[in-house]
C-alpha cells in the first residue's frame, strides 16, 4: 500500500537533511520577528477597501508593491517580458474582481495573490485548464475574526523567516519548485518544509467557516 498520510512530515530519513535545519525554526526570537515584520506589511485593509468602497488609492498601493513581484515571478517561470507584463495586469485586475473572496484567516495577501498569478501562469504558459477545488462558503456570516487573521499573519511571517534561514541550496530548490522547474517526483525530495503550525491554524479557520455557514 503506497498511500501517504498528510501529516507525515515527521522524522523520515529521506527528508532528514532538510528536517535537521527546520527544527531551528521553532526557536525564532522576538528580535528576528521584528525584522520580518518590516518587510511583511499587512494588506488586508487595502483589499477590504477595494471590496467595500472600490478604493483606487488602496489598489494603487497594492499595485506598487505586488505588480513588480508578480511580473518577476512570471519571468522567472519562463514568460517573456511582454507576456509577463500583460499577465501581471490581468492578475492585478483579478485581485480587484475577487476582493470579496479574500479571507485573511486562511491566506495572507501575498499567498492569495500568488495563487492568482500561478493560475494565470498555467493558463498562459502551459496552455492547460486548471481544475480548482470547490469554493468555500463566503458572505457576511463567514467574516473572519481579527484574532484569527492576526494569528495567520504571524504564522506566515514565521514561515517566511524559516524559509529565509534555510541553507541556500535548499532554498533554491523550493524556489525552483514554484518557478516550475521541478517535477513532482523531484518535489518529493523537499516536502519536509518548515510549515510549522500554519496547517493546523488554517484547519481551525476552515472548521469555523463550515460551522458558521451551516
Amino acid at each position: 500500500m503506497a498511500h501517504v498520510g498528510v501529516s507525515e512530515f515527521g522524522p523520515c530519513t529521506k527528508y532528514s537533511v532538510l528536517h535537521s535545519h527546520l527544527d531551528l525554526t521553532t526557536s525564532t526570537t522576538g528580535q528576528d520577528k521584528t525584522e520580518v515584520n518590516k518587510t511583511n506589511k499587512d494588506w488586508t485593509a487595502q483589499i477590504y477597501a477595494i471590496r467595500d468602497a472600490q478604493d483606487q488609492a488602496a489598489f494603487a498601493e497594492l499595485f506598487a508593491h505586488f505588480a513588480p513581484r508578480v511580473k518577476g515571478f512570471l519571468i522567472k517561470s519562463g514568460a517573456d517580458a511582454s507576456l509577463a507584463e500583460e499577465c501581471t495586469q490581468e492578475v492585478m485586475a483579478t485581485l480587484w474582481r475577487k476582493a470579496h473572496m479574500f479571507d485573511p484567516s486562511r491566506a495572507s495577501a501575498s499567498t492569495w495573490i500568488f495563487t492568482i498569478a500561478r493560475n494565470r501562469k498555467i493558463d498562459a504558459l502551459r496552455k492547460q485548464r486548471r481544475p480548482e477545488p470547490e469554493d468555500l462558503p463566503w458572505g457576511p456570516e463567514a467574516e473572519p475574526d481579527q484574532a484569527e487573521a492576526i494569528g495567520l499573519k504571524q504564522e506566515t511571517e514565521q514561515l517566511a523567516f524559516a524559509i529565509k534561514e534555510l541553507p541556500e541550496k535548499q532554498r533554491i530548490l523550493i524556489e525552483q519548485a514554484y518557478f516550475g522547474d521541478l517535477s513532482h517526483s523531484e518535489i518529493a525530495e523537499i516536502t519536509g518544509l518548515p510549515l510549522g503550525t500554519i496547517k493546523s491554524r488554517i484547519r481551525l479557520a476552515l472548521e469555523r467557516l463550515r460551522h458558521a455557514m451551516k
Binding site: F73, L159, I198
Partner: peptide, 8 residues
Amino acid sequence: AVGGVVME
C-alpha cells in the same frame, strides 16, 4: 503560503 513567500 510557501508560494506566496517565494513570490514576495
